[in-house]
């Protein structure tokens, strides 16, 4: 136990160090969620008679980038980030991702919503890991008052923070990856990269009917509410939810037959018509090369410099 640095803090500082940051974090998430939700509702009807270049309002380098290069690069870069082991390069990765987000001129609100969605999972790590990692040599631990069983290990906090930083860096790239081209184009790019064409078509179909089933589910749940149904923790609720679920599935299986009939009636023979053709330019490859170089640099930084 010689090389473990012990920091003893009085018990009253436990709330200061743990509970207060926690509360602040929770409050921030709550308010940001409300804010982002309000911002994410479209206020103005756009002109639907012209093709959207992307979901984003502005044109940018990322929008004009060949979709295949974009997918390959961002995926490879994401894996590079995922392989990082130290906090500093992970923070650099956040920097690069933010820069890309800025260049792509995609919606910050949507990026924020994505970050908030992982907040729960990530905060579990931030809360649990400092207390749960085993104490190794060279660790710095904080002990509050006489509560010897509750050891706050700074190495755990560092580990959790690294995970959080990596998650944030990758999540920030989602908007530049997905919102800079219409979904069918992105999926077409995937199919050009060797993913079976049907996979993309299945995503599109699922996406389309997701909205239909969500509306159906919403109407069914008002139907239940109007007859006095409120969810509680009891068997009655579970039975009602099971009926609801069963009905949702029955309706969807029935609908899928009709959809398939409608497709066949319009000449579907197992293949979807191909969307627009893609053209690769040198500049596309250049951006890919540049970006992947940045990714490699991060890994080198992580493995060699931080290790040393």
């Amino acid at each position: 136990m010689l090389d473990i640095t012990n920091i003893k803090l009085p018990l009253w500082q436990l709330p200061v160090f743990v509970l207060i940051p926690l509360a602040v974090f929770a409050l921030a998430v709550f308010f940001l969620k409300r804010f982002a939700y309000k911002r994410s509702i479209p206020t103005e009807e756009r002109d639907w008679s012209v093709p959207p270049i992307a979901d984003a309002i502005y044109d940018s380098v990322i929008n004009r980038w060949d979709v295949r290069c974009k997918i390959v690069t961002i995926l490879a870069f994401s894996f590079a980030i995922a392989s990082l082991k130290h906090l500093t390069p992970a923070l650099f990765a956040i920097g690069i991702s933010s820069l890309v987000l800025l260049i792509s001129r995609t919606s910050f609100t949507k990026a924020l919503l994505r970050l908030l969605a992982i907040a729960g999972f990530i905060s579990m790590f931030l809360i649990v890991m400092p207390f749960s990692v085993p104490v190794h040599s060279n660790d710095t631990v904080i002990i509050f008052g006489k509560m010897n069983w509750l050891v706050f290990n700074l190495r755990g906090l560092l580990l959790a923070a690294t995970i959080a930083a990596k998650a944030v860096a990758i999540t920030l790239l989602m908007e530049p990856l997905l919102s800079t081209a219409p979904l069918p184009v992105t999926l077409h790019g995937l199919s050009k990269l060797g993913v079976p064409e049907m996979a993309g078509q299945m995503v599109l179909l699922s996406y389309r009917y997701l909205h239909v089933f969500r509306h159906e589910a919403r109407r069914m749940s008002s139907g239940m509410q109007v007859r006095g149904f409120r969810k509680h923790t009891n068997i009655q609720t579970l039975r009602a939810v099971a009926n609801f679920l069963g009905m949702l599935l029955v309706r969807s299986f029935e609908r899928t037959e009709r959809v398939f009939d409608a497709m066949r009636a319009r000449g579907y023979k197992g293949r979807f018509p191909e969307p627009a053709e893609l053209h690769l330019k040198t500049s596309d490859l250049l951006i890919t090369a540049l970006w992947l170089a940045a990714g490699s640099a991060l890994i080198i930084f992580d493995r060699i410099i931080c290790q040393g």
Binding site: P51, P182, L183, P184, L204, L205, Y207, R208, Y209, V212, R255, R258, V259, D261, A262, M263, R266, G267, Y268, K269, F272, P273, P275
Partner: peptide
């Protein structure tokens, strides 16, 4: 139910589905 029939991502894409199959 028109939702059974409109399986395209956009109206144009959906409307062009038949002609493409032709």
């Amino acid at each position: 139910d028109p939702d059974d029939q409109l399986f395209g991502h956009t109206l144009l894409e959906d409307t062009a589905f038949g002609p493409r199959n032709q």
